[in-house]
């Protein structure tokens, strides 16, 4: 039955092959780009969650709910 479907669904093998090629192209390209990035920039980005504020606000600056 699968053979029947495949024979009648037109030439669709290229889709699977194209998908695989697209994936590996994107994967290799992004890996190449990422590996070439400069270290200072990467360090800056990775520190972002640890630097929430430009400067830590004092306790009194926070507005507390009554």
């Amino acid at each position: 039955m699968f053979k029947y479907i495949l024979e009648n669904a037109g030439n669709i093998n290229w889709m699977a092959i194209a998908a695989l090629i697209t994936f590996f192209t994107i994967f290799i390209l992004s890996a190449a780009v990422v590996l070439r990035k400069d270290k200072a920039f990467i360090r800056k980005m990775s520190m972002m969650p640890l630097e929430d504020s430009f400067s830590q606000p004092t306790e009194t600056e926070n507005r507390h709910e009554a």
């Binding site: 780009v33 990422v34 926070n62």
Partner: peptide
Amino acid sequence: SFISDEAAEAPALVSTHGVHKGEYWHRWVE
């Protein structure tokens, strides 16, 4: 005691138009 509005400060966003010249595409996308 709940801090409903937490104070913060940061420099205003500086326009980066044109800065991406020569830099990697991903940094541009970011």
